[in-house]
Design a protein around this nucleic acid. Structure first.
Lengths: 138, 138
DNA sequence: GGTAAACCTATATTAACTGCAGCTTTTTTC
DNA sequence: GAAAAAAGCTGCAGTTAATATAGGTTTACC
């Protein structure tokens, strides 16, 4: 059984954040020691790592909650799972294409810098395009 | 010249958020109409679109501020630009690999769902791995 | 078995927005 | 070209997702 501090260290999360996630119901209430301290198992570590990574990728807690529901019970409703998965996949693919563009531009800048001559920075142009946005928000 | 509402609509941003970005210095103070309303040009649209996309990708406003400094004046200091670009690129690449993993898992779920049988959901496992994290936060 | 590190709850603060109140400007429509 | 509706203004309060702090308890280790 892991203490909250160990869990925190192993996932790169603040102890306070773990308690916060429990409070809002993203993490289940763990067992407690006789003295009342939280005791976690490996599965909690997986769940927390998932939440942290998803957050780093820009998913809102509500979207993460949705994905966790999927993970908790994928049998429940195939139609639901499918629609959630499709929606999330669309988001993921959009993020991927933007990240790739940004990656290429940063690589170009580093390359040019090696030649002592960063002619110009096009990171703006790279993420400027919002053709897809138009379909997203009118 | 664009009104704040037009800018908002064209970038999928709330009007309040645009004013907030101006307040914290991410967007320059725009010109004003005789009556005192904000008037923007196309360049402001690019800048705002960049900020929004970067936010969606999970970059903190401070990281975005850094990228904007790079965009505003890449000549300024090649060493600075290089170190910022390298640091950001590392982040981007980490995000890319996690997003790819999530993409594959969501595709698999949708695929299985089509066969009316989501055997199990492995989104958790997909983002669980935190080998890189260990190097990030001890 | 004592003490330092880690944990507890509860509450306050921060970051990044979001919404509202009360008023002014701009646009539209007759 | 006037009036009414839509959009904008400032200033401030509220929300989300944490993060920090205060004051006290439990656990780990010599």
């Amino acid at each position: 059984m892991l203490s909250i501090g160990t869990l925190a260290k192993r996932t790169g999360t603040k102890v306070e954040t773990i308690r916060y996630y429990e409070q809002i119901g993203l993490l289940p209430e763990p067992e407690r020691s006789r003295g009342g301290q939280r005791r976690y198992r490996e599965a909690d570590l997986d769940r927390l790592a998932f939440v942290r990574h998803a957050r780093q990728l820009g998913f809102a807690l509500e979207a993460i909650r949705e994905l966790l529901v999927l993970a908790d019970d994928p049998h429940q409703s195939c139609a639901d799972a499918d629609s959630i998965a499709r929606r999330q996949l669309k988001q993921v693919e959009q993020r991927l294409s933007r990240l790739r563009a940004l990656q290429i531009e940063l690589q170009r800048m580093i390359e040019e810098c090696r030649g002592e001559s960063v002619s110009e920075c096009r990171v703006l142009e790279v993420l400027r395009d919002h053709a897809e946005c138009l379909t997203e928000h009118g």
